[in-house]
């Protein structure tokens, strides 16, 4: 993959951004998420999470399955404040 390949579309992060963070010694996907915002976008990482995990795995020699997953937080899909209010009223 090219260094300027976009890994996280929502937060506009390239492979180079992710690799630079890993190179600084951050090998935990949760840490990388918090420092770069990778996975914090509207899709919450449905697009980028796999790519991030693979990148960490290949840099550390670990299996993807052994890495700590980033947290997927509710609500699962973006929801308009207005729509939540309809539930209240």
């Amino acid at each position: 993959m090219e260094e300027n390949t976009i890994i996280c579309r929502c937060e506009d992060l390239t492979l180079a951004d992710i690799r630079a963070t890993i190179k600084k010694g951050f090998h935990n996907p949760q840490e990388i998420k918090r420092l770069t915002r990778c996975g914090m976008g509207p899709c919450q990482g449905s697009t980028c999470r796999e790519l991030l995990l693979k990148e960490v795995a290949s840099a550390t020699g670990k299996n993807v399955g052994d890495l700590e997953m980033t947290t997927f937080r509710p609500p699962n899909k973006p929801i308009k404040v207005k729509s939540i209010m309809m539930g209240v009223e």
Binding site: M40, P42, Q44, R73, P74, P75, P78, K80, V81, K82
Partner: peptide
């Protein structure tokens, strides 16, 4: 949402993602 839209109604249009 009840409280914050009371202070600032414009928030009704915002999308909550997390």
């Amino acid at each position: 949402v009840k409280k914050t839209t009371f202070h600032w109604p414009a928030l009704r249009e915002a999308n909550i993602i997390r």
